[in-house]
Design a protein around this nucleic acid. Structure first.
Lengths: 152, 152
DNA sequence: CCGATACTTCAGAAATTTCTGAAAAGTCGG
DNA sequence: CCGACTTTTCAGAAATTTCTGAAGTATCGG
């Protein structure tokens, strides 16, 4: 129990969940490695070995995880290899990034409202849609504040 | 301005946003028709005409939208065709359904915690992950309550 | 009951996404 | 600067997702 094999299985299952959450396959598997590694930081080569994936696809995954702010590149400790690690606020960041979709919904609804006449059934539906996403967008900053305070 | 063509464009753009949000392509386009139609309800055939898609793919999209509770089948008004319409609480429903992913994340983190030793770096990371998603899951019911109250 | 119309299912086609492998580019120690 | 090693890029391959079209099923009016 609690051996490496069991951890590996848990990591792969977690990767599948991350894919559900919208990450791409290799990004999700890479993120799982960052979560489950024993070490403080990992290199691209180590990830490729662990996942039995090509250096190319790992490179792409790291780039995308860096872009959304889930991992960070560490000040190189004199080594030739780049070291990366999971960022402290990774999960809040992931949640926030997914909320850009909410903003897009809001804007799409507004565009629809502008394109329809007041009183149109479509106009009413779109107004309801906009109201919901406006509400959500308004609530989220306070939500994340509560998290950061509780998590201090 | 405010003509059918402009509305159609807005509908297609909204569909793209819905796809971003995780819906499948045809489900998203179908949902956009439900939003932008002039009528109170629409039939599968009307949707297929509007989207220039096959009856088969529309059937699949309707089935999936029914399953997640975004649309509802109307009591048939003596017609041979089934009529559907957007449900009132569609957006809150869509939001909620996306939150099943949060629950899955929570469980995946818990599984990882169980598979690692206390004090392991991985154990610590997974504990942080679980804390965040537990927090989120705890906040969401209250969030939706506030919406329903404000929206009364 | 029967004919006509509408809906569903599903195998295969089409399109898209994702991964790999090899070549190019970058970086560090010496 | 050179040579060894690592990372990035990108064209094509592989895998997956998604759509269509046709056959089958269901339902309604007559």
């Amino acid at each position: 129990m609690n051996d490496r094999h069991e951890q590996w299985q848990a990591a792969e299952r977690l990767a599948l969940t991350l894919i559900e959450g919208g990450l791409q396959r290799m990004s999700a598997r890479t993120l799982a490695v960052f979560l489950f590694t024993d070490q403080e930081s990992v290199t691209a080569g180590e990830i490729a070995d662990r996942l039995e994936a090509s250096a190319g696809s790992v490179s792409g995954a790291i780039k995308s995880l860096l872009t959304v702010g889930l991992i960070e590149r560490l000040p190189a400790p004199g080594s030739r290899r780049e070291h990366y690690r999971l960022r402290d606020d990774a999960w809040a960041t992931l949640f926030t990034s997914q909320n850009t979709v909410i903003q897009a919904m809001l804007q799409a609804a507004a565009a629809g409202i502008a394109a329809t006449e007041t009183g149109d059934p479509a106009h009413q539906r779109l107004t309801q849609m906009r109201a919901f996403y406006a509400f959500l967008l308004g609530e989220l900053p306070a939500l994340l504040n509560r998290w950061h305070q509780q998590n201090t």
